[in-house]
Amino acid sequence: MRATLVEVAPRDGFQPIGPFIPTEEKVAFVEDAHAAGLRRIEIGSFVNPKAVPQLRDTGEVLRRTARLDGLDAQVLVPNARGVALALEAGARHLAYVVSASEAHNRSNVRRDVAASVRDYGEIVAGLPAGVKVRLNLATSFDCPFDGRVEEDLVLSRLDGLLAHREDVEVGLCDTTGRADPNHVFSLVLKCLARFEGRTRWAFHGHDTYGLGLANVAAAWRAGIAVFDAAFGGLGGCPFAPGATGNVATEDVAWMFRRMGVATGVGLEALVAVAARAAALPGAAPGGRVRAALAGICAAS
């Protein structure tokens, strides 16, 4: 058994931090995460720098980390302009985001869902050969404005999106962290059954209410094997009021190790990276494993 961890702290984790993290420091975090065994890393996003000033140097981070052996550098793109900038910078793995919830899509990308879906169709039709696509469906479980998102709406959104292209990876995103394991298990089962063999799946969870790790376990038991996580438990969507950090990568790695599931991640090296990230000025860290392992080391 093997699970793939996608490290998203350099994007989702850094974006809400106010004090600008120097480019050299961002590159060092990517390098150290790679050295800890993480091979898929979301290094930033090509969004309007006025909206997310922390990530205005994503192109430079992408360029400086391109030499890392086996690194699959993923970047988030919200629209056609972002795609053009990402491709110009040399990106070969794009994560496009659209919300299941109408209200969140308008808050996040300033347009309705139908416009985002049309934009997505035009984008994937024009991509160069060899460019991989992650389709992140934000608010797959809950919307900060409308509450619980019905499973039928999620399936309907995916019907429209996957009609444009099926050979993508779909990320089911618990944007607010208000999902529960039963909801995650149920929706994942329905998605895998409805789109069987047509696409690949990932789970993106937040730990706002302390259920992030339980939701990862539920998604795993339902059949998903790719999980987004952020070292140090950093993160939080600026356009989802109240949402806090992503589930901590070190917590996910520790859980899977205990379950006998391989991840290829060196936990001790990862915890060192997470501790540095948690200490960043302006960061709001989460997770439990860092403190637990530090306590064990202090007691021994």
Score class of each variant (00 low, 15 high):
109 V>Y: 01
131 V>Q: 05
125 A>F: 08
204 H>N: 14
207 D>I: 00
284 A>Y: 08
83 V>D: 08
156 S>K: 14
30 V>S: 02
35 A>Y: 08
23 T>R: 05
240 A>R: 10
20 F>A: 08
158 L>S: 09
6 V>P: 05
113 V>W: 06
250 E>W: 00
246 N>W: 14
257 R>K: 10
134 R>D: 15
169 E>H: 01
223 G>T: 04
285 P>H: 11
187 L>F: 08
195 F>Y: 13
204 H>E: 14
244 T>S: 02
252 V>K: 08
256 F>S: 09
258 R>E: 15
262 A>H: 07
266 G>F: 01
186 S>E: 08
165 R>I: 06
74 Q>E: 04
190 K>L: 04
243 A>S: 10
28 A>L: 15
179 A>L: 09
245 G>K: 03
183 H>W: 01
101 S>A: 13
81 R>H: 10
240 A>F: 12
160 G>D: 12
99 S>T: 11
197 G>A: 04
38 L>K: 02
244 T>M: 00
30 V>A: 01
220 W>F: 12
272 A>Q: 06
3 A>I: 08
261 V>L: 09
85 L>P: 02
167 D>P: 06
163 A>S: 14
237 C>P: 07
55 L>F: 06
124 V>S: 15
235 G>Q: 13
78 P>R: 02
82 G>S: 11
236 G>S: 01
160 G>K: 07
127 L>V: 07
83 V>R: 14
119 D>W: 00
174 D>F: 06
35 A>R: 15
146 D>E: 14
289 V>M: 11
154 V>A: 10
167 D>A: 13
238 P>V: 13
153 L>T: 13
13 G>L: 01
148 R>A: 15
156 S>G: 07
242 G>Q: 07
227 F>R: 00
138 A>F: 05
97 V>Y: 08
223 G>I: 05
290 R>Y: 04
140 S>D: 12
83 V>W: 14
249 T>Y: 04
248 A>T: 01
218 A>T: 05
164 H>I: 02
171 G>K: 01
3 A>Y: 11
45 S>V: 14
188 V>S: 12
74 Q>P: 00
285 P>E: 02
159 D>E: 13
82 G>P: 09
49 P>Q: 09
23 T>L: 04
13 G>Q: 03
131 V>I: 14
230 A>T: 00
109 V>S: 13
155 L>F: 12
5 L>F: 01
77 V>E: 11
65 T>D: 04
40 R>M: 07
124 V>T: 10
45 S>C: 15
99 S>P: 09
30 V>P: 04
109 V>H: 03
264 G>Y: 08
21 I>M: 05
1 M>C: 11
91 A>C: 05
228 D>M: 01
78 P>Y: 00
98 V>T: 12
58 T>K: 02
104 H>S: 01
255 M>Y: 07
54 Q>E: 03
